[in-house]
Design a protein around this nucleic acid. Structure first.
Lengths: 225, 225
DNA sequence: GTGAGTAGATAGTGGCGCTTTCTGCTATCT
DNA sequence: AGATAGCAGAAAGCGCCACTATCTACTCAC
């Protein structure tokens, strides 16, 4: 397959494909003559993976490069790849807000209550603490009461993810499955969470005020601040 | 409070504050003389909200503007604000991948099974379908078997969110609570999902191969593709 | 042999999120 | 009263990013 076909197959413009090759996201084609190269199904898959991470996962090109570098090192442990994917997927290096110490304690507490074996050295530990500290700096309601519900839900999701990755690994390889599941799973999860929000508030408003001309998606007028 | 104090209080540089004012994210201070303005606690809160959405939520400045515009229109229904927040939080306008029709059917099926009352006109419906279609284009394992677990977890999360927003609304206003919960909740959820992944795979690998020198965080070597 | 397609390289583009610089002012300290 | 520090507002500039355009020299298919 030549570059034009690869482009048509994946919907990615030719100059963009060349750009990805230059940037090291995509391996170059096998040269059949000084100005002809051939691409195969691996390139199609890889390109789709790249576009998925960029378009759906919202990753930057350099984040994708980091993730793929981890995917490509064959002897790397899943642990490291997962770490790279997690590192790459989170936006920026958020400046530490106030109240981080308390937030870290909250996270450690949840982890303890759940019986998880993750330490503060895991980058997600810190990310979570930053998010919680930020939340406390903005909103008054105590988020700690919610955190355990989140944790329980996450356990369920993680179990499902693992089962899926296990099944998928037989074809695509474990590492790639983990990466795809992590990056795209986030997108799935947050879209679904929004749908669930709509339903949950529909349910609440209907029980509060019955039959007041619902708006289709359910959530209805409510006072601002 | 003058701009210098506002800057110190929030950790945001003065030119950046001015930039946010220009961009309409932050209301201007009240002028006390032609070249002096005073800012109050509302500005501090607002600035923290902006930085939280940008740093932790990963939103762009223009996305934040859209969200805040919705927050500020007092008679707007929660429905609309939630929609604006949801619109703003999702990255780009992902090009439609192949297999969208099947993906839409899958989403509709899950919604039906769950008894949710959300239609395809909800933007998250489409976002979810795009994510699923992309996933199918990349990975072989059937994600549909996982989708119901996700949905159940999301129900739990959404119920917790709603309860929190209800409590928080008494102080901060419902609309703002919903926005904060939606945007920052995503960050919390994905960080926590990663922690749960680590634990879940630790649990699996330990049951498969007992005592093979665990690496601290649990996940350990496994074959690549 | 002609036209469409290609590799590889360099330069350019538009948007984003600030940052710098400037001018005239004013609050505050000594 | 003078010195110093800070401020408002406007305009221009900057560095990065993700492409995109253009070019040359080739070659393959008809």
């Amino acid at each position: 397959m030549r570059i034009g076909e690869l482009s048509r197959e994946t919907g990615v413009a030719i100059p963009t494909i060349k750009y990805y090759v230059r940037e090291g996201l995509l391996p170059a084609g096998r040269l059949t003559s000084p100005n002809q190269a051939s691409y195969d199904a691996g390139h199609v898959r890889r390109l789709r993976l790249i576009r998925g991470m960029i378009d759906v996962g919202g990753l930057s090109v350099s984040a994708v490069r980091d993730v793929l570098a981890a995917v490509d090192s064959p002897e790397e442990s899943v642990h490291k790849v997962l770490g790279a994917a997690q590192e790459a997927i989170t936006p920026r290096t958020a400046a530490a807000p106030e109240g981080m110490e308390e937030a870290r304690r909250t996270v450690a507490e949840v982890i303890r209550r759940r019986g998880w074996r993750v330490g503060p050295e895991n980058p997600s530990f810190e990310k979570l603490a930053v998010a919680l500290a930020t939340l406390r700096g903005i909103a008054h309601g105590d988020f700690e009461e919610v955190v355990d519900d989140y944790a329980e839900a996450c356990e369920q999701v993680a179990a499902a993810d693992l089962a899926w990755a296990g099944r998928n690994a037989e074809v695509d390889g474990l590492v790639e499955s983990v990466v795809v599941g992590t990056v795209l799973g986030d997108a799935v999860l947050s879209a679904m969470r929004r749908l669930a929000h709509v339903e949950a508030s529909a349910r609440r408003f209907e029980s509060l005020a019955e039959g007041a001309g619902a708006e289709g998606t359910g959530v209805d007028r409510a006072a601002g601040r």
